[in-house]
Computed example of a mutant assay.
Amino acid sequence: MSQQQIERMTSAPERVGQGTAVEQSRAVAEVQAAIVVAQQCPRNISAAIAEMRQVCTQPFLAERAFYRFPRAGGAVTGPSVHLARALASCWGNVDYGLVEMRRDDSYGESEMKAYAWDVEKNTRTSSTFIVPHKRDQKGGPKALTDMRDIYENNANNGARRVREAIFAILPPWFVEEAKELCAQTLRDGGGKSLPQRVADAIRAFEGIGVTADRIEGKFGRPSGKWTEHDVAQLLISFRSIQQGEITAEDEFPVRVTIDEITGPQDGAVA
C-alpha cells in the first residue's frame, strides 16, 4: 500500500457538519441505553433455546438457512446470514450491523466495517475491509459506476462479514443445534410427501433452465431414487442460484457424451 493510500485512509475530515455531530451524539446515547437495557433485562437462555428451536422448524427460514458457492472445482456450503440474524434475535441483547466508513470513487473502493456485539456480556467482534467497486464476471472483473450497483455490491460483500461476526459471538452449541434443526426441516419437507417434493423441485429448476436429466446426472441416479437429503440439497442450490452465489452451469454442468464429441462434424458425411 502506497503512502498516499495510507494518508487517504487515515486522514480525518477538516470540518464536521451539524448533522454529523448530532449523529455522533445520538450513537453514544444509543450505546449507553443498550447497556442499561441489557443489564436490566438479561437474556433467559432457556427461552432463547426454545425460540431457536421453534423458528428453525419454519420452512421459510430453513430454506434460506444455508448458502452454497463454487470453490476449487467443488462447492462450499455453510450457514447463511439469514440464519445468523435469526439466531441473534433469538439469543437477545445482540447488536450487529454494517457501516460504510468511507467511499472513494476516484480509486473505486469503499472502506467498510462489519460488527457484532453481545451487549450483555460485552463481547464484541468487528472487521474493517476494503470492497472494490467491481463485480467478478467470466471475462474478468467489471468496474461499477452506477450508485445502486455499488450499494448492492457493498451490501453483498458486507453480509458475509456480518454473518461471521454474529456467529463469532454466539455459543457454538447454539449455532450447531440450529443448523441441524434447519437441515432436518428441509429433509422433512413441511409435511409434503417425497414424490411431491421431487416433482416441485424439478418444476422449480425447469423454471430457471435446468432440466431433470442434468440434476440426475449430478446425483448419478434417476429422480425416482432421490432421497430426502438430495431434495434438501436441491433447495440450497436453488436459493444459491437465485441469489447469484453460484451459477446453474457450475452446479449442474451439461454432460457431453463420447458420441457427441466423436460424431460427424458440420459438413462431414455421416
Rank of each mutant, 00 (worst) to 15 (best):
R64N: 13
R163P: 03
A21P: 01
V269M: 07
N153V: 04
F205H: 05
V55R: 14
P59G: 08
G139T: 15
P141A: 14
Y107T: 10
E152K: 04
P13E: 14
L234T: 00
A114V: 10
T123C: 09
P42H: 07
R71E: 12
R203M: 13
G220T: 04
A183R: 08
L144I: 14
R214A: 10
S80F: 05
E51Q: 14
T57Q: 15
A34K: 04
V256K: 03
A75K: 01
P222H: 09
L144Q: 12
D105C: 06
N153G: 08
W173A: 15
A201T: 11
D105Q: 11
I6F: 06
D95Y: 00
F60R: 11
I246D: 06
A116R: 00
Q196M: 14
W173F: 11
M9E: 08
Q40T: 15
P59W: 01
V16C: 09
R197D: 08
L181E: 08
A116F: 02
F219W: 08
A268H: 06
S193W: 00
A86M: 06
P13K: 12
F69P: 00
A38H: 01
P172H: 11
E180M: 10
Q243R: 08
L194K: 07
Q4I: 00
Q40Y: 04
A48Y: 10
Y115N: 04
R135L: 07
A212V: 11
P132D: 12
S80R: 03
C41R: 06
A201I: 03
F205Y: 14
R221N: 11
R53T: 02
D136N: 11
T145E: 09
E152R: 08
E245R: 08
Q3H: 07
I130C: 10
V269C: 07
Q184G: 10
Q243T: 13
E51A: 14
D136C: 06
S193L: 10
Y67N: 10
T10P: 02
L235D: 01
V94F: 08
V36A: 13
T145V: 13
K134Y: 10
L194F: 05
E260I: 01
V28M: 03
E100Y: 00
R221H: 13
